[in-house]
């Protein structure tokens, strides 16, 4: 049986349950990095933070259910959504804790939806789409639009900012732990923001982004495309790997997990990209660790 990953060293445990962007892509070509859509967990003892609810959240839910099956403590999960595009919400109906009596599941999202956030989530579990509606779920489920700037959860503090360079907008998050910080910043087209000779708005957005990710111990960020692919996908709302790595290094990020892999990118290509960028940034002074997020991996930070 899978062992329960609990912290004993006050290090954050970061779980990658889905790292694929846009649509789930199962099969031999994506077996190594995985085909499930975005879901990342941050765990410190019994504080569970989850970023996005793509199809990968199903496996996380199964593990949490196994872990808490024989425990007297109640499970409480804080699920932060970057936005409500399909690849970030489609796993919610299959999230096992939502079906557990007594479990607390709180879903957070942008207040920029002007009151529609809850309606959007309930809509995807409408009876015509799925046989169980949100109201039928036995867990204690709450949906909240984020207000203010930070939220304290156990020994962790979560902060967030709106991202405008993605169709419909998205949120980025930073988790401050006892000894390390992790940033989750997916679904943003930094190529639209980090341009030569930026106007005032772009210059301001650049500074906000750099400040937000500055000195992160781990940055999990959108790097869906190669620079060669970009002209054909400009405006889709995602960043090139080349630009992402440059920005992360400029912001003195210690480790970068390239995330939201393109559905067309097979394992072999991701391996080659990893090899190239890892070598490039490992040899700089100071070095920056670069790796490609991989489903089924839990790393300490």
């Amino acid at each position: 049986m899978t062992s329960s990953i609990r912290d004993t060293t006050q290090r954050l445990q970061i779980g990658f349950w889905g790292a694929r962007g846009s649509i789930s892509t199962p099969g031999r070509l994506t077996e190594k990095y995985g085909g499930n859509t975005p879901c990342v967990s941050v765990r410190l003892n019994d504080t569970h933070i989850v970023f996005d609810a793509g199809t990968g959240i199903r496996n996380l839910g199964l593990e949490l259910a196994r872990d808490y099956a024989d425990r007297s403590e109640e499970l409480s999960v804080h699920l932060f959504l970057s936005h409500t595009h399909w690849d970030h919400i489609q796993g919610i109906p299959f999230f096992e804790p939502a079906y557990m009596q007594g479990a607390k599941v709180t879903i957070y999202g942008s207040s920029a939806k002007h009151g529609f956030f809850e309606e959007i989530l309930r809509g995807q579990m409408g009876y015509e789409y799925f046989p169980v509606t949100m109201s039928d779920l036995p867990s204690e489920l709450r949906i909240r639009e984020l207000e203010g700037e930070t939220l304290a959860l156990g020994d962790l503090v979560v902060s967030w900012e709106e991202q405008i360079y993605h169709p419909g907008g998205s949120l980025r998050y930073r988790v401050q732990g006892p000894g390390s910080d992790v940033v989750y910043a997916s679904d943003i087209e930094l190529n639209k923001c980090f341009v030569p000779d930026p106007d005032i708005q772009r210059a301001g957005e650049q500074k906000r982004y750099l400040d937000f990710i500055h000195d992160a111990d781990l940055l999990i960020a959108d790097g869906q495309y190669t620079a060669e692919e970009y002209p054909a996908v400009e405006g889709y709302g995602h960043t090139t790997i080349e630009l992402l790595t440059e920005i992360a290094y400029q912001a003195q990020v210690k480790r970068l997990a390239v995330f939201h892999h393109d559905p067309k990118h097979p394992d072999r290509l991701l391996d080659a990209l990893w090899q190239e960028y890892r070598a490039k940034y490992a040899t700089l002074t100071p070095p920056m660790g670069v790796f490609w997020a991989r489903e089924g991996q839990i790393i300490p930070v």
């Binding site: 991996q297 839990i298 300490p300």
Partner: peptide, 25 residues
């Protein structure tokens, strides 16, 4: 197959990344 670190002093690495647990490929 899963690889899991048993809270070792110097860590367990897969393809250069320190892991707490990892599905092996």
């Amino acid at each position: 197959y899963y690889l899991e670190d048993l809270q070792s002093t110097n860590g367990t690495f897969v393809n250069g990344v320190q892991v707490t647990r990892c599905v092996l490929r």
